[in-house]
């Protein structure tokens, strides 16, 4: 399933790249540029609504945290509100919230901190009306950085909770 989704995503991404490159600024809009193709059977542009790709591109799948903190920033709340709205629109979907940390902590503490971040994100989504049974959490501590590099920019992007559509 995961493999299939990935390959669909790859094709869609390629199409999107072809179509949006000339017009610029349409990336992520989800509808732009279709009419400009001459193909007889136009493929839908952008991710299929309701998929993880749709969620990543059109909602935003992750929120970020300050060092050694699990407090939700205003920006994080806005993202989670959009996520909750999306989840109400697709009531059949369930999600896993993955909590992550930067590399500047010890392994076991970071496992706990990652769990605390995922729980903070989940609690907020539940407070917005998302059924708790649709949300599970997992912590990877510092095991799965999103961005390479031992520098502040990378660490800021690695202190995150990522919402993955199951």
């Amino acid at each position: 399933m995961r493999m299939k989704l990935l390959s669909v995503f790859a094709v869609v991404a390629l199409l999107a790249a072809c179509e949006t490159a000339p017009t610029d600024g349409q990336a992520g809009a989800g509808t732009g540029g279709v009419q400009s193709t001459t193909a007889p059977a136009p493929a839908p542009a952008g991710p299929t609504p309701g998929t993880n790709e749709d969620f990543v591109v059109n909602v935003g799948d992750r929120v970020f945290f300050a060092f050694d903190s699990s407090e939700l920033t205003a920006e994080a709340r806005t993202t989670l509100e959009k996520q909750a709205f999306w989840l109400r629109k697709y009531p059949q979907t369930t999600v896993t919230l993955e909590g992550h940390c930067d590399e500047r902590g010890t392994r076991e503490y970071n496992l706990a901190l990652g769990e605390r971040r995922a729980a903070a994100a989940r609690d907020y989504m539940v407070s917005l009306g998302v059924d708790p049974s649709r949300v599970t959490t997992i912590s990877y501590g510092k095991e799965r950085p999103a961005v390479l590099g031992s520098n502040e920019e990378a660490w800021a992007q690695n202190r995150r909770s990522v919402t993955v559509i199951n």
């Binding site: 076991e108 496992l111 706990a112 769990e115 605390r116 729980a119 903070a120």
Partner: peptide, 9 residues
């Protein structure tokens, strides 16, 4: 061991 649940370990 530790058990982490609901943000508490």
């Amino acid at each position: 061991m530790s058990l982490a649940r609901d943000g508490i370990t």
